[in-house]
Amino acid sequence: MIVEVKHLTKKFPVGKAYFTALKDLNLSFAEAEFTGLVGPSGSGKTTLLNIIGSLDVPSEGEVIVLGKSVGRLSPPEAALLRKQELGFIFQNYNLLPVYTVFENVEFPLLLLDMPARERKKRVLESLSWLGLSDKVNSRPAQLSGGECQRVAIARAMVKRPRLVLADEPTANLDSVNSHNILQAMLKLNQELKTSFIFATHDEKVIGYLKRIIQLEDGRVAEDRLV
Protein backbone atom coordinates (compact mmCIF):
# COMPACT_ATOMS: atom_id res chain seq x y z
CA MET A 1 0.00 0.00 0.00
CA ILE A 2 1.33 3.42 -0.78
CA VAL A 3 -1.50 5.35 0.85
CA GLU A 4 -3.62 4.31 3.80
CA VAL A 5 -6.47 6.47 5.04
CA LYS A 6 -7.72 5.43 8.49
CA HIS A 7 -10.74 7.02 10.17
CA LEU A 8 -9.93 10.34 8.51
CA THR A 9 -12.05 13.27 9.58
CA LYS A 10 -11.37 16.81 8.41
CA LYS A 11 -13.02 19.82 9.99
CA PHE A 12 -12.64 23.42 8.89
CA PRO A 13 -13.32 26.22 11.31
CA VAL A 14 -16.14 28.36 9.99
CA GLY A 15 -16.77 31.30 12.27
CA LYS A 16 -17.19 29.83 15.75
CA ALA A 17 -18.31 26.42 14.53
CA TYR A 18 -16.76 23.73 12.40
CA PHE A 19 -17.60 22.44 9.00
CA THR A 20 -16.85 18.76 8.61
CA ALA A 21 -15.64 18.16 5.05
CA LEU A 22 -14.52 14.54 5.46
CA LYS A 23 -16.18 12.08 7.84
CA ASP A 24 -14.42 8.96 9.08
CA LEU A 25 -12.95 7.87 5.75
CA ASN A 26 -11.21 4.52 5.38
CA LEU A 27 -9.39 3.86 2.12
CA SER A 28 -6.19 2.40 0.82
CA PHE A 29 -4.33 2.84 -2.45
CA ALA A 30 -1.84 0.39 -3.94
CA GLU A 31 1.03 0.85 -6.36
CA ALA A 32 0.20 1.58 -10.02
CA GLU A 33 -3.41 2.49 -9.36
CA PHE A 34 -5.39 4.68 -11.72
CA THR A 35 -8.09 5.83 -9.38
CA GLY A 36 -10.60 8.65 -9.37
CA LEU A 37 -12.35 10.45 -6.56
CA VAL A 38 -15.69 11.45 -8.04
CA GLY A 39 -18.71 13.13 -6.60
CA PRO A 40 -20.63 16.36 -6.57
CA SER A 41 -19.08 19.71 -5.90
CA GLY A 42 -18.30 20.15 -2.22
CA SER A 43 -18.16 16.43 -1.52
CA GLY A 44 -14.56 16.67 -0.28
CA LYS A 45 -12.48 15.48 -3.23
CA THR A 46 -9.94 18.30 -3.15
CA THR A 47 -9.77 18.20 0.62
CA LEU A 48 -8.84 14.51 0.56
CA LEU A 49 -6.32 15.03 -2.21
CA ASN A 50 -4.66 17.87 -0.27
CA ILE A 51 -4.29 15.75 2.83
CA ILE A 52 -2.85 12.82 0.88
CA GLY A 53 -0.51 15.34 -0.71
CA SER A 54 0.63 16.49 2.77
CA LEU A 55 -0.50 20.01 2.03
CA ASP A 56 -3.05 19.80 4.79
CA VAL A 57 -3.38 17.68 7.91
CA PRO A 58 -6.12 15.42 9.26
CA SER A 59 -8.31 16.67 12.11
CA GLU A 60 -8.84 13.12 13.33
CA GLY A 61 -7.60 9.73 12.19
CA GLU A 62 -4.50 9.09 10.18
CA VAL A 63 -3.25 9.22 6.62
CA ILE A 64 -0.10 7.26 5.89
CA VAL A 65 1.69 8.10 2.66
CA LEU A 66 4.62 5.87 1.73
CA GLY A 67 5.02 4.86 5.33
CA LYS A 68 4.82 8.36 6.76
CA SER A 69 1.94 9.64 8.83
CA VAL A 70 1.05 12.97 7.24
CA GLY A 71 -0.37 14.49 10.42
CA ARG A 72 2.85 13.95 12.33
CA LEU A 73 5.28 15.39 9.83
CA SER A 74 6.90 18.74 10.51
CA PRO A 75 6.48 21.23 7.65
CA PRO A 76 10.00 20.57 6.34
CA GLU A 77 9.43 16.81 6.52
CA ALA A 78 6.15 17.19 4.64
CA ALA A 79 7.93 19.33 2.04
CA LEU A 80 10.60 16.65 1.70
CA LEU A 81 7.94 14.01 1.13
CA ARG A 82 6.36 16.12 -1.61
CA LYS A 83 9.70 16.91 -3.13
CA GLN A 84 10.86 13.31 -3.35
CA GLU A 85 7.78 11.19 -3.84
CA LEU A 86 4.78 13.19 -5.02
CA GLY A 87 3.72 14.86 -8.24
CA PHE A 88 0.88 17.35 -8.57
CA ILE A 89 -1.26 18.27 -11.55
CA PHE A 90 -3.74 21.13 -11.37
CA GLN A 91 -6.80 22.27 -13.19
CA ASN A 92 -5.14 25.43 -14.46
CA TYR A 93 -1.66 24.01 -15.11
CA ASN A 94 0.18 26.57 -12.95
CA LEU A 95 3.19 26.86 -15.13
CA LEU A 96 5.60 29.65 -14.19
CA PRO A 97 5.11 32.16 -17.01
CA VAL A 98 8.61 33.64 -17.04
CA TYR A 99 10.32 30.30 -17.57
CA THR A 100 10.56 28.17 -20.69
CA VAL A 101 8.97 24.75 -20.99
CA PHE A 102 12.34 23.21 -20.29
CA GLU A 103 12.89 25.31 -17.17
CA ASN A 104 9.39 24.65 -15.84
CA VAL A 105 9.94 20.93 -16.09
CA GLU A 106 13.45 21.23 -14.71
CA PHE A 107 12.36 23.05 -11.56
CA PRO A 108 11.48 19.98 -9.40
CA LEU A 109 14.89 18.52 -10.22
CA LEU A 110 16.63 21.72 -9.14
CA LEU A 111 15.01 21.28 -5.75
CA LEU A 112 16.41 17.75 -5.64
CA ASP A 113 19.94 19.12 -6.28
CA MET A 114 20.37 16.89 -9.29
CA PRO A 115 23.48 17.55 -11.40
CA ALA A 116 22.90 19.53 -14.58
CA ARG A 117 23.60 16.76 -17.07
CA GLU A 118 21.28 14.33 -15.36
CA ARG A 119 18.62 17.05 -15.18
CA LYS A 120 18.82 17.74 -18.86
CA LYS A 121 18.50 14.06 -19.74
CA ARG A 122 15.48 13.63 -17.49
CA VAL A 123 13.72 16.78 -18.70
CA LEU A 124 14.13 15.89 -22.36
CA GLU A 125 12.98 12.34 -21.70
CA SER A 126 9.95 13.54 -19.81
CA LEU A 127 9.04 16.02 -22.54
CA SER A 128 9.35 13.33 -25.21
CA TRP A 129 6.95 11.05 -23.27
CA LEU A 130 4.39 13.77 -23.69
CA GLY A 131 5.23 14.67 -27.26
CA LEU A 132 6.64 18.07 -26.43
CA SER A 133 10.15 17.70 -27.78
CA ASP A 134 9.66 20.57 -30.21
CA LYS A 135 8.41 22.98 -27.51
CA VAL A 136 11.47 22.89 -25.28
CA ASN A 137 12.22 26.60 -25.55
CA SER A 138 8.66 27.92 -25.76
CA ARG A 139 7.12 30.02 -23.04
CA PRO A 140 3.80 28.93 -21.53
CA ALA A 141 2.03 31.89 -23.12
CA GLN A 142 2.93 30.49 -26.54
CA LEU A 143 1.30 27.12 -25.88
CA SER A 144 -2.27 25.87 -26.23
CA GLY A 145 -4.17 24.72 -23.14
CA GLY A 146 -3.61 21.06 -23.98
CA GLU A 147 0.11 21.65 -24.42
CA CYS A 148 0.27 23.53 -21.13
CA GLN A 149 -1.32 20.64 -19.32
CA ARG A 150 1.10 18.23 -20.96
CA VAL A 151 3.98 20.38 -19.72
CA ALA A 152 2.45 20.26 -16.25
CA ILE A 153 2.26 16.46 -16.49
CA ALA A 154 5.87 16.34 -17.67
CA ARG A 155 6.78 18.46 -14.65
CA ALA A 156 4.94 16.11 -12.32
CA MET A 157 6.53 13.04 -13.90
CA VAL A 158 10.09 14.25 -14.37
CA LYS A 159 11.26 13.09 -10.96
CA ARG A 160 9.41 9.78 -11.43
CA PRO A 161 7.27 10.08 -8.32
CA ARG A 162 5.57 7.09 -6.77
CA LEU A 163 2.27 8.94 -6.62
CA VAL A 164 0.70 11.65 -8.76
CA LEU A 165 -2.27 13.67 -7.49
CA ALA A 166 -4.35 15.36 -10.17
CA ASP A 167 -7.16 17.75 -9.27
CA GLU A 168 -9.58 18.25 -12.19
CA PRO A 169 -6.79 17.99 -14.79
CA THR A 170 -9.16 18.14 -17.74
CA ALA A 171 -11.51 20.88 -16.54
CA ASN A 172 -10.07 23.48 -18.90
CA LEU A 173 -9.52 21.19 -21.88
CA ASP A 174 -11.63 20.23 -24.89
CA SER A 175 -12.38 16.60 -25.44
CA VAL A 176 -9.58 15.87 -27.91
CA ASN A 177 -6.98 17.27 -25.55
CA SER A 178 -8.58 15.56 -22.58
CA HIS A 179 -8.27 12.17 -24.26
CA ASN A 180 -4.73 13.02 -25.27
CA ILE A 181 -3.47 13.72 -21.80
CA LEU A 182 -5.41 10.84 -20.26
CA GLN A 183 -3.81 8.42 -22.71
CA ALA A 184 -0.42 9.89 -21.89
CA MET A 185 -1.00 9.45 -18.17
CA LEU A 186 -2.33 5.94 -18.60
CA LYS A 187 0.80 5.03 -20.53
CA LEU A 188 3.05 6.43 -17.78
CA ASN A 189 0.94 4.59 -15.21
CA GLN A 190 1.62 1.33 -17.01
CA GLU A 191 5.25 1.88 -17.93
CA LEU A 192 6.52 3.51 -14.74
CA LYS A 193 4.09 1.91 -12.29
CA THR A 194 3.19 5.36 -10.99
CA SER A 195 -0.04 5.59 -9.04
CA PHE A 196 -2.49 8.28 -10.12
CA ILE A 197 -5.29 9.63 -7.96
CA PHE A 198 -7.69 12.01 -9.69
CA ALA A 199 -10.35 14.28 -8.32
CA THR A 200 -12.86 14.83 -11.07
CA HIS A 201 -16.45 14.88 -12.25
CA ASP A 202 -15.48 14.71 -15.92
CA GLU A 203 -17.11 11.74 -17.67
CA LYS A 204 -14.15 11.46 -20.05
CA VAL A 205 -11.79 10.93 -17.13
CA ILE A 206 -14.13 8.48 -15.49
CA GLY A 207 -14.03 6.40 -18.68
CA TYR A 208 -10.30 5.77 -18.19
CA LEU A 209 -10.34 5.02 -14.47
CA LYS A 210 -9.62 1.55 -13.17
CA ARG A 211 -11.09 2.30 -9.76
CA ILE A 212 -13.79 4.78 -8.88
CA ILE A 213 -14.36 6.12 -5.39
CA GLN A 214 -17.63 7.98 -5.10
CA LEU A 215 -17.64 10.65 -2.38
CA GLU A 216 -20.83 12.15 -1.11
CA ASP A 217 -21.03 14.70 1.63
CA GLY A 218 -17.61 13.76 2.97
CA ARG A 219 -18.23 10.02 3.05
CA VAL A 220 -17.39 7.16 0.70
CA ALA A 221 -20.64 6.25 -1.03
CA GLU A 222 -19.12 3.68 -3.34
CA ASP A 223 -15.70 2.18 -4.07
CA ARG A 224 -15.56 -0.08 -7.12
CA LEU A 225 -13.05 -1.49 -9.56
CA VAL A 226 -13.85 -1.15 -13.25
Partner: peptide
Amino acid sequence: YGEFGLRLAIGENKHE
Protein backbone atom coordinates in the same frame (compact mmCIF):
# COMPACT_ATOMS: atom_id res chain seq x y z
CA TYR B 1 0.79 33.43 -4.51
CA GLY B 2 0.05 31.04 -7.35
CA GLU B 3 3.74 30.50 -7.85
CA PHE B 4 4.32 30.12 -4.12
CA GLY B 5 1.55 27.53 -3.85
CA LEU B 6 3.02 25.60 -6.74
CA ARG B 7 6.47 25.65 -5.25
CA LEU B 8 5.12 24.42 -1.94
CA ALA B 9 3.40 21.60 -3.79
CA ILE B 10 6.56 20.71 -5.64
CA GLY B 11 8.36 20.37 -2.37
CA GLU B 12 9.74 23.59 -0.97
CA ASN B 13 8.81 24.50 2.57
CA LYS B 14 7.89 27.97 3.72
CA HIS B 15 11.35 28.72 5.09
CA GLU B 16 12.92 27.87 1.79
